[in-house]
C-alpha cells in the first residue's frame, strides 16, 4: 500500500450501532440503581481520586451506557473505592457496587 503522507483519520463519532451494550445490560441486571443516574455530577464533584486523576464517575457511567468500553477500562482502576460518591448521590445509585462490577466484568472480558 502506498503512503501519501496522510491518511484516513479515526472518527471521533460514537457509532451506537456498533457500540458494545453488554456491560450496561449486565450491570443493570445486578445493580438496578445503575439506571437511576441523571448525570448531575455530584459524585465527580466530591470524588477524591478525581481531583488528581482523570477519574470521572458520571462520565464513566455514561460511557458504559454508550458502549465505549475502551475508555472505561482505561479509567476504572483510578477509583479508590472510598464511597463518598454514594454518600452524595441524589438518586441513590449504589456507586461502589457499580465500580466493583465494572472491574469484575472487564477482568472477565480480559480488557482491564
Amino acid at each position: 500500500m502506498k503512503d501519501f503522507g496522510f491518511g484516513i483519520k479515526k472518527s471521533g463519532v460514537i457509532d451506537l450501532d456498533k457500540a458494545d451494550m453488554s456491560l450496561l445490560r449486565e450491570i443493570a441486571a445486578e445493580e438496578p440503581s445503575f439506571l437511576h443516574c441523571f448525570y448531575c455530577g455530584t459524585c465527580t464533584a466530591t470524588c477524591s481520586a478525581g481531583k488528581y486523576t482523570g477519574f470521572n464517575l458520571r462520565r464513566l457511567q455514561l460511557l458504559i451506557k454508550r458502549g465505549q468500553l475502551d475508555e472505561v477500562s482505561e479509567r476504572i482502576s483510578e477509583c479508590m473505592l472510598c464511597g463518598k460518591c454514594q454518600w452524595v448521590c441524589p438518586k441513590g445509585v449504589n456507586t461502589r457496587h457499580v465500580v466493583m462490577l465494572v472491574n469484575k466484568k472487564l477482568h472477565a472480558r480480559k480488557i482491564c
Binding site: G12, V13, I14, D15, L16, D17, Y39, R58, R59, L62, L63, R66, Q68
Partner: peptide, 12 residues
C-alpha cells in the same frame, strides 16, 4: 451530540 460526553454520536 452526546453533550454529556462531549462527543458526536450517530445511530440507526
Amino acid at each position: 451530540e452526546d453533550t454529556l460526553l462531549g462527543r458526536p454520536m450517530k445511530l440507526t
